Amino acid sequence: MTGTRETPEIGQVADAVVGNWVDRLAPAWSRPYLRLSRADRPIGTWLLLLPCWWSLALACVMLDRLTTGDLWIGIGCGLGAWLMRGAGCTWNDITDRDFDGRVERTRSRPIPSGQVTVRQALAWMVIQALLAFAILLTFNGTAILLGIASLAIVCVYPFAKRFTWWPQVFLGLAFNWGALLAWAAVTGDLQWPALALYLAGIAWTLFYDTIYAHQDKEDDALIGVKSTARLFGEDSPRWLRRFLVAAVSLMAAGVILALAPATDVLTLTVALCGVWAFGWHLAWQLGRLNIDDPARCLRLFRANRDAGLIPVLFLAAALAL
Results as ranks from 00 to 15, higher is better:
L63K: 14
W82A: 11
A213V: 09
G287P: 01
D292M: 12
L151T: 15
R97C: 06
A152Y: 03
V275L: 03
T205A: 08
A182P: 07
P112E: 04
T4G: 01
F99N: 01
L181T: 14
A213G: 04
A132Y: 10
D189E: 14
L195M: 10
R5C: 12
F207T: 02
N92A: 01
M62A: 15
P167Y: 00
L151H: 13
A247W: 04
D220E: 02
L250F: 01
L266S: 14
Q12V: 08
R41T: 08
T117N: 07
T267H: 01
S249D: 12
F301T: 04
W82V: 09
T117D: 10
L48N: 03
L315Y: 09
V13W: 06
K217H: 14
L122D: 06
V154N: 07
A262E: 14
F133C: 11
S108L: 05
F170S: 12
G188L: 08
G80C: 01
G254W: 05
D98Q: 15
C77S: 14
L250W: 01
A134S: 14
L190F: 10
P261F: 02
S55K: 09
L50R: 02
C89S: 02
R238F: 08
W177I: 06
G101E: 05
P237C: 11
L286I: 03
V22D: 03
P8M: 00
A184G: 06
V156M: 11
